[in-house]
């Protein structure tokens, strides 16, 4: 089962510049683990030390915020599109 994850620019140095990566994972938590295995360091950018999603990074499954789905236990299926969206303050 493969899910496409869209990687925002600030995290692409962890994905060798790739803006989309395909990873396995039955739910968002397992997907983050797969992502971190393939691209070490990415989990720490998304989750705090307790494993909870950081409050300034959102994860969307097919455009819906996982906070309104099942959080990190949100189930995934083949073909789902996952977007990682960090808060960005730039306007200058």
């Amino acid at each position: 089962m493969s899910v496409t994850v869209k990687i925002p620019t600030p995290l692409r140095r962890l994905t060798q510049g790739k803006d989309k990566v395909a990873v396995e994972g039955e739910d968002v938590k397992l997907l983050i683990e797969s992502l971190d295995k393939a691209h070490p360091g990415i989990r720490d950018r998304l989750c705090d030390e307790t494993g909870a999603l950081r409050h300034f990074v959102n994860i969307y499954v097919n455009g819906e915020d996982i906070r309104y789905l099942g959080g990190v236990t949100t189930k995934l299926k083949t073909g789902d599109e996952v977007s990682i969206v960090p808060a960005v303050a730039g306007g200058e």
Binding site: P8, T9, P10, V85, V88, A89, G90, G91
Partner: peptide, 9 residues
């Protein structure tokens, strides 16, 4: 609106 590198929101 916000911007960084090549990304916008």
């Amino acid at each position: 609106g916000s911007i960084l590198i090549f990304d916008g929101q």
